[in-house]
Design a protein around this nucleic acid. Structure first.
Length: 752
DNA sequence: AACTTTGGCGAGCGGG
DNA sequence: CCCGCTCGCCAA
């Protein structure tokens, strides 16, 4: 196996990079090949297309990307495989290459603050300084000597030299700022940037991996480096004014040194964040498992699965479908979600969960592009999917084969982890843990690519076979529970909640589902092997669904566990789903008040009067006292400004949403706000339509107190209505006039 | 030579 | 006052 740390195009060649014993790069070149595979030889092949047998396929080789593309478009009737694959991906799939360990560094640059960030990424700002830190903490720095092209050229040369010993370069918002700035300046100054680095955006990496871990709303209000560093490593940025880099650089002496220090501090924060989170390491592990280089692109599931599957296909002599450009894809139906069937403080609620529902369905029904039967295919044994599409069962399909493999590899690395921990090898155990988690990530992303229009595996029949089976299974076990006299409270996708039974009864129920019921109903559909199973791991001592407009809401609840991860719980273990306190776009005071209410409710307080007092206290505080800015600002992310709908359905002009109006204003002032960035604003008058707002940075003390109270109270009100639906009129403390239908007379509340 | 999915909630906007 | 729509964010 060749351990390659990087690879890139180099004029009709693909150049792979290896590292020798003394850390020097060794290059090996491969032909850049533009190929496609076909089962049959298409008639009248032009002589410029080279054809040869490869396994059971004909390999068609074209002279370049354009000619392959043109031929594909002109011959859509010919079933071509892997006809989209880039030469680099081809080399990685077809050769005994594995992704070598990366020598990683962290990079941050400072640029001329006199031009806007938007202009800076167009190449209009000089780079004033750079800082590079590596995993061991070794640091390097460069500073512009004078305001001239020659000096900046030297600065870039020095940067290239500093990066030279590394393979992977990480930076915060690297893809949307530092990298484009460097590229543009290098182009302008005619400096050639080597191609052998894997550039990875640490912000994008953080966002991707942080999605999976439970976090509070407070942590989600900002993804600025300083705020994330504060949260992860308890260390913020200094008070250097980053919008005055030019002045500080120009002043020279101590002020210039302060700028350099600030620059270096940021680069070092990147290292500290990684040391804490290991997200870049996690991504490297996944990239390595998939035979792709660990750059920003490697964060995407399509890239990961493509890398893994192209290699597997090459090794085993099958071929993957070509990715085709689609106009637009039809929407597929997804999971089943029910509305909770009860309100109040519900006690002793039991949860049955399907383990790895979608992968287990794929394996059970053998759902794959290569097992799907057409309406005219007869005489072949099949499993019948719930969308009436049949999947042959006489061989295991590629897609289930892969989910199964991911599952087995995960099990293997889990046991390795345990073995290594027992052996006292913590470093290797950590690595094993990353691998088991990597295979979990990969296994769960397989379903996504069946319904992604950008994926070579897109097929609505495959994706819907999965989701409809899921709907059918969850509804089936919900009905089975009801047959036993349990009350089915709520279901979402793969989990069903019941009350009206005991722990022992529920254990038996779940055992019977697994031993008899599920195997029987699945076998009825023609499935040969059953991989579908439910797990009983959680029970709630109490659970509350919030209520809005008299209806309990789906996707939201608070609960206190009595049984968690398969074990009895004695302490206070709380679960909060979907509530405002977990959201980064809710009001800070709303989160605070809601957490206080949740805390009391979960402590077992069932006296509404206590909560009435709590509401009164909060209301007095908010309607009379001073409130700091941080409690008043709203924070939301924005998309790129052109993508907002400016017209309503009748074609009339309509105003943009609040966050977009603020973003637009900030962009006009020259700030660098791009898709995914968050903006902060204060509502000055909520009675106007549209509301009057100001950017948080303009705050001088003027804000709408009524609005702040509504945003604070509503999240708690809905929970209190859920807990005590008939004891109080919780609308009493709202400021906007209550609607008639909201007056909570018993006969007007549905469902209970 | 680059984009995992659908379901659902609540805020805000504006028309009828 | 009600409703349909968009948007951001979360559950799975």
């Amino acid at each position: 196996m060749i351990p390659a740390v990087a690879g890139f195009n180099a004029f009709r060649k693909i150049r792979l990079v290896q590292i020798d014993g003394s850390g020097r790069r060794i290059y090996s070149d491969f032909d850049a090949r533009y190929v496609a595979y076909s089962r049959n030889l298409p008639s009248r092949i032009h002589h410029s297309i080279k054809v040869q047998h490869v396994g059971n396929f004909f390999e068609l080789e074209f002279k370049d990307w354009e000619s392959r593309d043109k031929w594909r478009k002109a011959h859509t009737n010919v079933e071509l495989f892997e006809g989209d694959v880039t030469p680099l991906k081809r080399v990685l799939a077809d050769n005994p290459i594995h992704i070598g360990k990366q020598r990683r560094c962290y990079l941050d640059i400072e640029t001329d603050s006199r031009v806007t960030p938007v202009q800076a990424i167009q190449g209009m700002a000089r780079i004033l300084s750079w800082a590079v830190v590596d995993s061991r903490g070794f640091a390097f720095q460069g500073c512009l000597n004078e305001d001239s092209n020659d000096a900046e050229t030297q600065l870039l040369f020095d940067l290239i030299a500093a990066l030279e010993p590394y393979d992977q370069v990480s930076g915060w918002n690297l893809d949307l700022f530092d990298k484009p700035v460097i590229d543009e300046r290098a182009k302008l100054l005619e400096v050639k940037i080597p191609r052998y680095w894997n550039w990875i955006d640490q912000l994008a990496t953080y966002k991707r991996f942080n999605l999976q871990v439970a976090t509070s709303g407070d942590q989600k209000t900002s993804f600025k480096l300083g705020d994330i560093a504060q949260f992860e490593v308890g260390e913020g940025k200094s008070n250097f004014k980053s919008n005055r880099t030019w002045e500080e650089w120009a002043a020279g002496g101590a002020r210039r040194r302060a700028m350099l220090e600030y620059n270096m501090q940021d680069a070092d924060l990147l290292r500290k964040i990684e040391d804490k989170t290991n997200y870049l390491d996690m991504n490297f592990t996944i990239a390595q498992l998939c035979n792709i280089f660990p750059n920003s692109h490697s964060l995407k599931p399509t890239a990961q699965l493509d890398g893994y599957l192209l290699r597997l296909a090459h090794e085993e002599g099958f071929r993957l479908p070509s990715r085709i450009e689609r106009e637009e894809t039809e929407k597929a139906v997804g999971a089943f979600v029910s509305q909770p069937t009860a309100c109040g403080i519900l006690k002793d609620v039991f949860v049955a969960d399907f383990s790895s529902l979608y992968p287990s369905i794929i394996e059970t029904w053998n759902i794959s592009y290569d097992t799907k039967l057409g309406p005219n295919d007869t005489g072949i044994p099949f499993a019948l999917a719930l969308n009436d599409v049949r999947y042959r069962t006489d061989h295991v399909g590629i897609i289930p084969r892969v989910t199964e493999e991911f599952g087995k590899l995960r099990t293997f690395w889990k046991s390795e982890k345990a073995r290594l921990i027992a052996a006292g090898d913590t470093a290797a155990a950590k690595d094993a843990d990353r691998r088991q988690n990597g295979f979990k990530v990969l296994r769960n992303s397989v379903y996504g690519i069946l319904l992604s229009e950008y994926s070579r595996f897109y097929d609505k029949d495959l994706g819907e076979a999965v989701t409809r089976a899921g709907q059918w299974l969850i509804q089936s076990i919900a009905a089975e529970g009801e047959k036993l006299g349990y009350r089915n409270l709520y279901n979402d996708t793969d989990g069903a909640m019941f009350d009206g039974c005991t722990h022992g009864e529920f254990l038996q129920f779940v055992a019977r589902l697994n031993d008899e019921y599920l195997p029987a109903i699945v076998s009825d559909k023609g499935c040969v092997t059953n991989r579908v199973a439910v797990d009983y791991q959680e029970a709630f001592e109490r659970i509350i669904f919030p209520v809005n407009d008299g209806e309990p809401a789906s996707k939201r609840y608070i609960g206190k566990f009595s049984f968690y991860q398969g074990r009895a719980v004695t302490g206070k273990v709380i679960e909060i789903k979907g509530m405002e306190c977990k959201r980064g776009d809710s009001s800070r005071l709303g989160r605070r008040m809601q957490l206080e209410v949740i805390d009391r409710l979960m402590d077992g307080c069932e006296d509404p009067e206590i909560f009435v007092q709590m509401v009164e206290t909060w209301k007095t505080k908010i309607t009379t006292e001073d409130i700091p800015l941080e409690d008043i600002v709203m924070s939301k992310s924005v998309k790129s400004i052109e993508t907002y709908k400016t017209k309503d359905v009748h074609g009339r002009e309509k105003s943009l949403p609040a966050q977009a109006r603020i973003a637009k204003e900030l962009i006009e002032r020259g700030e660098n706000i791009s898709s995914g960035d968050r903006v902060q604003y204060v509502v000055v008058n909520s009675l106007k339509t549209p509301m009057s707002l100001i950017p948080a940075s303009d705050f001088k003390g003027d804000f709408d107190r009524r609005y702040v109270w509504e945003r604070t109270y509503q999240p708690s009100m809905r929970l209190l209505t859920g807990a005590f639906p008939n004891d109080r009129n919780w609308l009493h403390w709202t400021i906007k006039k209550p609607k008639k239908k909201d007056i909570p007379l018993d006969n007007q509340l549905k469902l209970f």
